[in-house]
Design a protein around this nucleic acid. Structure first.
Lengths: 128, 128
DNA sequence: AGCGGCTTTTACGTAAAAGTCAATTTTTCT
DNA sequence: AGAAAAATTGACTTTTACGTAAAAGCCGCT
């Protein structure tokens, strides 16, 4: 059946504005089809948007996200390009591992904060 | 001995600019002492900066970081405030868990990209 | 006293990623 | 067909987190 999605269906699903999706199109991240001037998003576009938003959540810039999409769309074939790409991939991975560590540590801290809150509440004599 | 750090010592240690550290002071995140007009950072300031930068890496805004610092500096004592804080902590934790999941997934994808690169290189006949 | 180097303050600038608004279309419903 | 609802476009604005440039102060050294 190959369903089409309207822009507002997707904004509702992902909790973003139409402006945002149009912005992503302007930036060349997605290329929905058109019927007249209306955008028609396919499954592929929808999945792409999921990936874009995931990238956004972990702090990738639009440029970085576009780069990643590019690599999937047409992977480099030449040795120099491939090695460069691998280097960039390795850097990104290190960055993400650091970020993951930062998150673990912060999660632990937040656990402590919660503990402290519970303790304090108990002191005041509030049963949780 | 209670050593003081100059602003440039810290910029070198953490790889940030003096502008950044002054900005954090303007935003009320750190309060180094002064000798004349010169800032003198203590160990406590230094550790605080570490935490600020960690927060920054995982995408916290200055306002959020300030809020966290505030909670440490003077924790709420009243029931309503405590419960509110716990709610905010819980939200933050969920957000961070999502982010961690996003990172895991992206790390896996990057592994695949690397694999693909190696395969392609082997195809071209390059020994890695 | 002069120099180099670091520091300060003030003030304006900027890039990224949208948000907002107004003026048109276009589509949908009856 | 005609009104209402939804979508598009373009221009302008906003927010965050600093960057940058100018003009000057302080400090140790020679």
């Amino acid at each position: 059946m190959n369903k089409y999605y309207t822009i507002t269906e997707l904004t509702r699903e992902f909790g973003v504005s139409t402006r945002t999706l149009r912005f992503y199109e302007d930036e060349g991240l997605v290329q929905p089809e058109r019927r007249g001037r209306t955008r028609l998003f396919r499954q592929a576009d929808r999945r792409l948007i999921q990936e874009i938003l995931r990238g956004r959540r972990i702090g990738f810039t639009i440029a970085e996200i576009r780069e990643i999409i590019q690599v999937y769309k047409d992977p480099p074939g030449e040795e120099g390009q491939l090695k460069l790409l691998m280097k960039r991939v390795d850097e990104k991975r290190n960055e993400l591992r650091q970020k993951r560590k930062d998150i673990e540590e912060t999660l632990n801290e937040l656990d402590n904060v919660e503990e402290a809150c519970l303790t304090r509440l108990a002191e005041i004599g509030v049963s949780t």
